[in-house]
Structure formats: C-alpha cells, structure tokens
Design a protein around this nucleic acid. Structure first.
Lengths: 350, 350
DNA sequence: AAGCGTGCGGCAAGCGGTTGCCAAAAGTTG
DNA sequence: CAACTTTTGGCAACCGCTTGCCGCACGCTT
C-alpha cells in the first residue's frame, strides 16, 4: 500500500486497530488519503473530476475507514435529500401495497430512500405532509390524492410531484385506464345477459370513483341497461355488508364495485345471506388486489399492473428531478387494464 | 399587530405579497421577529428557555412565513435524523404490511419519519441497509431479521435497534408467542382426532421457522402423534402447490403451515386436486393475514396482534433513543397469540 | 523557448440549524 | 439601594459535506 505520508500511515494504522469512537467523516478520509476534503467529495460524487490515481487512493481510504457519507450533510449543502415521499390514503388497503412495492423497488434501484406516509384519506393530512416534508423529500408521489385541483396546482408549483390515479394538469400523472376497463366490464355483463346493473360507489373525494361512475353511467345507458348507483361506501371489506344489502334492494343482477375490498366484503355478506354469487348476483371488483384470486368465489375484477404503475411514477418523478436527458419528461402515463374473469360473474338469473 | 421594528414590518409585508423565491430559513424568522437565530431555535425546540412574549412573537413570525425547519440541517448539528428505518424481508408479504402499518402509526404519532426498506430475504441486503443508513436513521426495526446472532450483536453495538420475531440477546425484541400458539394448534388438532401431523416449513434462515418446528416436534411427539416435516418452502402462495402435494404424500391428515401465504397456496392446490379441506386434510396457517378470513375455506390460523407488535417495537426503540424516563426500557415483549378457528380444520378422516 | 490551454486539487464560503458560553436585563434580598 | 442571583437572548463555533473559484503544473503549439 503506497502511503501518501507517514502521518496518514500512522493514523490509518491507529484507526484500523483502535477504532475511532465517532463514525468517520470526509475529513478522516481526506487525511488518510492525504488530500483535501473537497477532493474526496469530488472523487466520490463526480469521479471523472479527479485523477484516477487519486480517486483510487481515496476509495481505498474510504473503504478502510468504512466511510459512509452523511446524507444529511450532503443534503444540506446540495439542497437535495435523495428521498422521495410516497403518500397513500390508507396503508391498510392492499391496493396501495402494490404501488408501494412498485415505488420501493424503483426507488431502491435509483438509490433513493422511500418515505412512506399514510394520509388517512384526508386532504388535510395530505397537505400537511406535503408541507412538513417539503424539506425532507425531493419529490412526492401522490397515490389517489384527495387534493382539489387548485391545491394540487399550488403544491406542484413548489414541489416536484407526480400523481397516481388522479388526473391533474399541473403535475405528471400515471393513470389506470379505468374507462376502458369499465367498458370491458359492462361488455362482459351485457354478454352474460345482464340488464340491470349497479355501481357501488367509493369515497366521494376519490377522483377515480367519480370517473368510474361517469363512464359506467354513460356506457350502461348507451347499452340500454337499467342503471343504479349506491354508495358512497368506505372502501373496506367491512362496508361490504351494507353495500351488499343495498345492492340487492336495487334489484340489479350485477354490480361493478369501486374496489376489490368492498367487493370482497359484499361477497361475504351475500354468502351469509344465502344469495348465490354469481347465480343470483354477479360482482365485479376493481384493482385485482391480493386475495381477489382466492376469495370465495374468486373475484372477477379489473386488473392493472399496479406495481408497474408505481415504478413508472417513480421514473417520471426522477425524470422531473434530473432534467438531464434532454427530452421533456412524459406528463402522462396510462396503464392498460383488462378484465380478469373469475367466478363471481355469470349469466344473469332468468 | 405589534411590529418589533419597521424593518421587520417591511420585510413581512414584502414577504406576504411577493413571496420569497427561496423557502424561509430560521434567519428569516429571526429577522421578522427581531431576534437572533439562536433565540428562534430555542423558542422552537425548548420553549421554556425563552420569554413567553418573545416566544409568541417568534411563533407568529414563523407562522407568517410558513416556516418549516429543515430536518436535514437540524440533524446535522444535533446528530439525529428523527427517522427510523423499518427493514422487512419482503414487502410483498401481507404479514409485514401489518407490522409496517403498526410502526408507521406509532412513528407518526411520535413525529418520526418511517424509512421503509425491503431486504429481499437476504442477510447481505439487510446488513448493507443497516450500514448505508446508519447515518440517515436514528434506529432500526428489524422485522424477522435474517442476521446471525453474531452479526446482530455487532450491529447492535453501534446502532439502536429492536428486532421483531427474532430472538436476540443483544437487542430488545418483540416476539410473538409462537410456542404457545403451536401448542394450541396441536391441541386443536388432537381434539379433532388427528394423529398424523405435518409441519410445512418456511425459509431455513427464519428464526421463527426454526422455533416453530422445534416446538411442533416436541409437542406432537409428546402427544404421541406421527410427525412429518416437509419443506423448506418460500413463504408465498405460489409455493403452496408443491407444499400441498408433498403434504399429501406424507399421509398426514393435518398440516401446520409456516405462514398463511403458504397455507392459502396449499388450499388452492388441494382444491384443484379435489382434496377436500377439512374433510380430507386440515390446514392451520399462521399470522392471520389479510385474506385468511375470506379464502376458501376460511383459514384456521394462529392470530397475533401484529400491528400492535409494530407499535410496541417502535415504543421500545424510541425508549432506547431517549433514555429519559429513568426506568430501563423493556428488553423483551411477547405478544400473545391465539388460535382463530375457521373452516380449514375439522375432524380427522376415518 | 515562450505562451497558452487544460486537468487536477486546494481554499474557503456556505447550507440551515444547534448550543456552549457569556453578558445584559430583570428580579431578589437584606 | 447595593449586591447578588436568575432569566433571557446574542455571539460564534461548529455539524459534515458541496462547490465556485483559483492557481499550480504539465503538455502542447508555434
């Protein structure tokens, strides 16, 4: 090992044997390598800015000391935190698991830390988190944001963000092609002979809920179906019972449900009441969450590559943060959807 | 509004109308309030250290500027990040969702940020994360750590951590009372007349897997049962098919499965093969994850307050970080378990 | 051989807070 | 009212790292 100086050699040895009490800083590395801290900093962040020989020396020193740069300090001067916050309305909801998984995956690949926040379906909490964390995150991914357009616009002014499943003109968005999915679902029901259909609504503040209903109503009407709507319901299995009862009362023979959670809850209730699915009533969920394939009966549902959507969202955010690669970053990504037909849908009862 | 000085008043006005380009710093607040930055700092962190009147002035100024302290900068000097990393072996596994939910909840309550990391069931990644993040997190919660005792001991030397579902003498631990649960499960099976039982093993590196097997073997043997063991299997539904087939081959009439994921996968396979559950074979899972109640048939499983376990883990970690309240923090918390009997277990076939 | 461009590394000024230390102000006491 | 104690708030030195700017040394051109 070529030692730059006796002093460094001595310290190095001392360090290796009697470990410092305090974690090594860039200064320690600089000293060991016999260079200035600025050189170490550069060697580590823009390797081509220093002479290869110097760089190697520094890298060795860093390795020897087991040096890890403080992201805090780095952030302080560079102004970046290397972290991205992912805000979801409800950690409890398996739907978001998939997107969390997707973002986590892609963020990790990019070496960015994921800050996970549960906004509890509340726009206030969402706004609050956005505000409080503006210094601790470089950007935000808003899953199913509950914010109004105006709020979204204002926030996007000062922070990098991408919305997921919430259209926005002010921020890049990754969407799920719900309209197409609803139409597919209706088509499926129509082909099974259903004429009376019911939309089981989710949270009124959910943008995608509104969209789904709109498309549902339009398309079902166009097909000459009798359309009902019940809700809103909290998108949890526990709300399923009420939803199921209400659905039955409408006289509809098939329901398209805001999400799988609610749909599964309905399934349970219908079974408890002795109403057979799909013989008496067909149910279509949405999201194809974990469990949709093994519930009873397995749920016909609208599938979409949610996890991939998470990854795409991260890519879009990252592109926004490093506008290096010339090309303007995409403003909208639409994830394809398809109907996964399982056993909760069947011919309309006669 | 009592203005401390004309200058401040002017700046305040200017600020309100033509917003600063740059987010406000503690200096801006100090200027507006007409005090030194140190006073602002103190007013905000140790309110009793400043005169109430001053404090109010500062608070108003901060509010007016919409000031949010930079956690980065704060961390730099204080040495704390106000963040806790939660490492889970597999974000995909619903079991961990519950604990993530629990930790998230409690951390948020404490105003601490949660850093979520997926270690992909690998001890290397776990170690790596522990190392890379030592500067960005004040402490770690290791869910089902894959680390060896030695590694755990070494890491716990330099970082605050609590392990979950992984016994450790070197770090506080929150455990699930698996032994008791396994015994309950075996008791349940025995009372249903089962004599040939099979343990379906999970990952060999999983500490809780080893423990479960050990207790299973002991207790089943003691009861004079014929005991089988198959596995290891990856704890995912997709491994369930292989596990189911293997289980059938053993001739056992009941299985206790490493976790619900695997158990549900087995259920699906058994159903596909026309083997009735529980008529032909009883299945007991573990963890009572989301979905265990609505799979087909609903799964008898070992339940535990996982989410609460997450909260407890956070409390223990926080206690470790602020050893203020005198009393030595708890080193071990054992969460109670109970068997939730649903429909996947029944009398042994004759 | 002198002039010049360029690559490389050091200096030092921050980034936005915290905190030990000290002095001024305010409150106490005899 | 003086002497003394307690508050209260300012000064300035960091915390660990980044980065603009500068100068040195080397190599190339003419």
């Amino acid at each position: 090992m070529a030692n730059p100086s006796m002093e460094a050699a001595t310290r190095g040895a001392a360090d290796a044997s009697a470990r410092r009490d305090r974690p090594p800083t860039i200064r320690d590395v600089a000293e060991l390598a016999g260079v200035a801290t600025s050189t170490v900093s550069r060697a580590l962040s823009r390797p081509d800015r220093v002479n290869p020989r110097t760089r190697v020396r520094i890298e060795e020193a860093a390795a020897e000391l087991n040096y890890v740069p403080s992201s805090q300090a780095r952030g302080l001067s560079s102004g970046r935190t290397n972290a991205v916050a992912v805000l979801v309305p409800d950690i409890t909801n398996p739907f978001y698991f998939d997107i969390i998984r997707g973002t986590q995956h892609q963020l990790k690949a990019a070496g960015v830390t994921q800050l996970l926040v549960d906004t509890e379906e509340s726009s206030e909490m969402e706004l609050d988190a956005l505000h409080k964390m503006r210094k601790s995150a470089d950007g935000f991914i808003l899953a199913a944001s509950r914010l109004t357009d105006a709020q979204l616009a204002e926030v996007s002014q000062s922070q990098a963000l991408v919305t997921f499943n919430r259209a926005s003109t002010s921020a890049p968005t990754v969407m799920i092609d719900t309209p197409s999915a609803i139409i597919q679902a209706l088509e499926h029901l129509a082909s099974l002979g259903h004429h009376k259909v019911c939309y089981v609504a989710g949270p009124p503040t959910s943008w995608s809920n509104q969209l789904r209903w709109k498309v549902f109503e339009e398309d079902a009407t166009k097909r000459g179906m009798e359309v009902h709507r019940i809700g809103p319901y909290t998108p949890k299995t526990t709300s399923g019972a009420a939803a199921a009862d209400a659905a039955v009362r409408t006289g509809a023979t098939a329901c398209i449900v805001f999400n799988d959670l609610l749909a599964i809850g309905m399934l349970q209730r219908l079974q408890a009441r002795g109403i057979r699915v799909p013989a008496d009533m067909s149910i279509i969920g949405s999201d194809d969450i974990f469990g949709a394939d093994f519930c009873n009966p397995p749920l016909t549902t609208i599938s979409s590559p949610i996890e991939q959507a998470g990854r795409v969202a991260v890519s879009m955010l990252l592109a926004q943060l490093n506008p290096l690669s010339g090309s303007a970053s995409r403003q909208l990504a639409v994830m394809p959807t398809h109907l996964t037909v399982r056993e909760s849908t069947g011919p309309a009862p006669v």
